[in-house]
Design a protein around this nucleic acid. Structure first.
Lengths: 312, 312
DNA sequence: CCTTCAGTTAAGCTGTACTTAACTGAATAT
DNA sequence: ATATTCAGTTAAGTACAGCTTAACTGAAGG
């Protein structure tokens, strides 16, 4: 009954046995004989001073002590495994795994990917549509692009370009809805994906900042920003597009912004990776490429004039 | 550069070295010679195919690979240690470590502790003023008493008595403020600790449920429920006391409740422990003792009439 | 009743993980 | 300059942890 940790191999044997609820399967997983595993468990039980498994006829079940131990061993060995994979990943300068939200992936990354592949043929880019809660090591992620306000501690977090929104539409609609009064009558496309932001970034806020009463809410509404922009591209109506997501369409004429009045957004896309990893060659290359791509279209971006947001 | 986990002892050696940033200190921690530790690190580096430490003149620093690995090994070994301690704890039927919020500790547990000690002299109770986010194994906690609405998964969660609030004051004040109109003029003591609950449980809600306009907010305000009750016990004014926290003072006459109209609270104190641990002798004894103590004062509790909460 | 299955026990072997001891190479003291 | 110390490395030798094989137990099941 020692207070120090028992032999680690015994703990791993226990973990495998607890996960499979079978010594034989656990032994198979660890590539050892059942006898060896039995021995390990026995030695662990001696260290503890109590059994960890109830031995039944043809099965084993966990004792109280086993139940107390098993969730932690499981989590711990998963963690070790994640860390080891991460260490292996640092040795690989060929591949780069990036995670980003659907809008940034569709409207920023995808249209520029060919360019990156040409600039860095040696780097194999992989995309992972992973969850919002990022665990870099667990999910084998190198870089995340996330929209948000603040940096997280323990992470390298580089804010990308200033964000704002501006009304965008296909050129064919500009003749009809080029005037402010006419715009209020236009089919307005709503993007719910940034509803959480304060101050508000929506049609009401834009019209208010332009000194107009907001028109009554109408028109289609999308939960994801890229769908709202796709609708605008399809000529459905006018969308409030975030800079990063529409600047390329604007620069290349697929969309136009008749009103050069942009509403600032309290939040930016950020380039995020674990602290210290920003210097790995492929991560550094990817980061520089992103900054360069943003710079390419900065003239288009700078042609807009910032509105005063309504901070009430 | 194998994908499977490297030898665990090597990982532990790395973990110690990364924590101390010194092979010598790490060796001391693990009770081995520096030579052995150096060997372990070297073998780990061979498994990985790359160095984990930069060897400087009289110091070592982590490489990229080392930095990627170290947070995970640290977390993993901490977790193993927590699990092992938890397993050891199941072997101990003498001690019981309980965590509860300050109000429950002061107003429920503390006044009844002597009673528990008499009923179970063999059990040594320990209290831990631990954080809200409970990690039973990490903090060596057996049982938590928490106020809340829902059960957490993976945990055994037993809701204790129905909760409600009722105006309480010292007997001396009852003559003055025994009438509803007079009460509205009384110094009302506010308890901010349950402001988060919906529907509201405050003076406004109580007066509304009594069919009266709520009096303007005035009187002292406390961030912790026990301080509000202490103020009432000191004769400062009238507090809205939660059942669990005032029932003993009511039953023993230190406080009186001139209005037998109680406002239900959407939430209860809960007895919480890791799933499966509820059958350990001292935990079971503690649980039964709590239920029994609640039952003792159920007559006092049942003398109150429930108000309809305003659910708008 | 014999077979099969899951885990245990015992005996013996192997290689991991230790020790001791001598060495390197730089910083600091003399 | 030269010696000392300090932190880590290397090499040789050793001991025991942890493995295997093989025989055993005891219950379920055809």
């Amino acid at each position: 009954m020692s207070d120090r940790l028992p032999p680690l191999t015994a703990l791993r044997a226990f973990d495998a046995a607890a996960r499979h609820m079978s010594f034989a399967q656990a032994a198979a997983e660890l590539n050892v004989t059942p006898a060896a595993l039995s021995f390990q468990i026995k030695s662990l039980e001696e260290h503890l001073g109590a059994p960890l498994f109830h031995r039944l006829n043809r099965a084993v079940t966990l004792t109280d002590a086993g139940r107390a131990l098993s969730p932690d061993t499981q989590a711990a060995f998963e963690r070790l495994s994640a860390g080891w994979r991460a260490a292996l990943r640092t040795q690989d300068h060929q591949t780069l795994t990036v995670t980003a939200g659907p809008a940034f992936t569709a409207k920023w990354l995808a249209p520029r990917l060919f360019d990156f592949a040409q600039a860095h043929p040696e780097i194999e880019l992989r995309f992972s549509a992973s969850l919002r809660i990022m665990d870099f090591n667990r999910d084998n992620i190198d870089v995340a692009i996330r929209f948000g306000t603040g940096p997280d501690k323990g992470l390298y977090s580089l804010p990308l370009a200033e964000e704002w929104v501006v009304p965008v539409m296909v050129p064919e609609l500009a003749a009809t809805y080029g005037g402010l009064q006419a715009l209020a009558q236009a089919p307005l496309i709503h993007d719910q994906s940034i509803d959480f932001l304060k101050p508000d970034v929506n049609w009401g806020a834009w019209f208010t900042a332009m000194g107009m009463d907001a028109p009554p809410r109408s028109g289609p509404s999308f939960s994801q920003a890229d769908h709202a922009i796709d609708a605008a591209l399809a000529g459905v109506g006018v969308a409030l597009g975030r800079r990063a997501l529409v600047i390329k369409d604007l620069a290349e004429g697929r969309l136009v912004a008749p009103f050069p009045h942009a509403l600032p957004v309290n939040g930016r896309f950020r380039f995020i990776c674990p602290e210290g990893m920003q210097d790995r060659p492929q991560i550094d290359a990817f980061k520089n490429w992103i900054l360069q791509e943003i710079d390419k279209l900065s003239d288009t971006a700078n042609s807009f004039e910032m509105l005063e947001p309504d901070v009430t």
